[in-house]
Design a protein around this nucleic acid. Structure first.
Lengths: 228, 228
DNA sequence: GCGGCTATTATGTATAGACATATTAGGCGA
DNA sequence: TCGCCTAATATGTCTATACATAATAGCCGC
């Protein structure tokens, strides 16, 4: 039954899900669980700690461990590089660099990056293709101040893959929204203007400043799945 | 400098981010790190294990620990109950139960729940309001086979809040998409038919079967934010 | 040189014991 | 009775040691 703290974690989770200890209730102390399962307290600790990280229980010293009430369900989204995402479905991947030019940063991306509008920036438009059909239309703004001086040929190596392999990132955020396709987006994605697009915007920051802001538009019907 | 494995984890992460060990490179073995930091190997293990869970490094026995190439970035989304979500922004929350009736399950929701189309189900339409304005239009299908016989008045207590407090859930998934507003959705959300809606569909399963399928439509401009 | 077996090595995990720390319950004094 | 202090207690963490497991490196026979 039990070989490893992860099995213990799974067993405790099952008992919590089965309402053996209802939300808000205290579960037995580590020492008692250790005794009951015939393992060391450190093992119980590791298991319960993992449950706490997952948000299933809440722990406080002396007060004990209790099952979380109104469990804020945490969903985890794995964001692979787009090429992997497509290839993971067994489809062929390709991308086309549509435009690449230096341009001053407009207000929208500037606000998201925390930079002043009007500073110089590198602007890339890329179309990602799966099985030869449009998969995503990408508009990316790069902050040259945070990049190495010699840039690669983005027509060959996608900007995203180059970035993750080259520039250390520290934090970032991700925003989901739905927006009507502009004329340019509709043309790129081979759909109609005004069609609902799933838009994913990503901001990435490094140690010493913002690195890039990406806006990914997916054609109608595209879905992003997460697991609870 | 070092009090606790989490500080060690943070320090190692900083060194990785600083490219001291570039992506794909091996980092020193646990024993060497333990020696270098003057801690026990178990402490190093706990720290590196946390980094591995976060996807920063990849570990294989005998082969050692290496910095992840193409790091699959993991974003975590906290999904609170809608009431909390709204109140958390300092806005007033209200909801209106639009319809509640027993109906046979249509093909779409049936497929998502893993049930046969045509089985009896409970169908709820709810409008969530923030600050008196439409926040989300919810269409929910409940599987009566998995519910207690006596249901509450969903006009008072929202179905979601009642569920999380009453029915044990085991797993589920979450799908994001963008869809044009139907006439009914447009009317409920006070927008135009065809307007792009952010649609979030959630399936929830319990120990002995599927519990509920929810489709949440958010009005144009709505955004969902996650942090990396 | 080649294929397969074995020794080595790094991680995975467990254990017992110890001390640290936060928090609460209860006692004690004003 | 109220407020403060202290002792008890549950978790947090570390150490040292041990054995398990997986994967590689290298040896050995052919």
């Amino acid at each position: 039954m039990s070989r490893g703290w992860d099995d213990l974690r799974a067993d405790l989770l099952a008992r919590i899900r089965a309402r053996e200890w209802p939300p808000g209730a205290l579960i037995p102390a580590e020492e008692q669980l250790a005794l009951a399962y015939g393992v060391a307290r450190a093992t119980v600790n590791r298991a319960v700690q993992a449950l706490a990280e997952a948000g299933v229980v809440e722990r406080r010293k002396r007060a004990g461990t209790r099952v979380a009430t109104l469990p804020v369900r945490k969903a985890r989204l794995d964001i692979p590089v787009i090429r992997r995402e497509v290839e993971g479905r067994g489809q062929t991947y390709a991308h086309r660099l549509l435009t690449q030019r230096r341009e001053v940063l407009p207000a929208g991306p500037a606000a998201r990056l925390g930079l002043a509008p009007g500073v110089p920036a590198l602007r890339l438009e890329t179309l990602h293709l799966a099985e030869g059909r449009p998969y995503a239309y990408e508009l990316r703004w790069l902050n040259p101040a945070q990049l190495p001086p010699d840039l690669p040929d983005f027509a060959v190596l996608s900007a995203n893959e180059w970035l993750v392999a080259t520039v250390p990132f520290v934090s970032g955020d991700l925003v989901f929204g739905a927006e009507p396709a502009s004329r340019a987006e509709a043309a790129a994605l081979d759909t109609d203007p005004g069609a609902p697009l799933l838009v994913i915007e990503r901001t990435t920051r490094g140690l010493s400043g913002p690195i890039t802001f990406v806006r990914l538009c997916h054609p109608p019907g595209h879905r992003v799945t997460m697991h609870l």
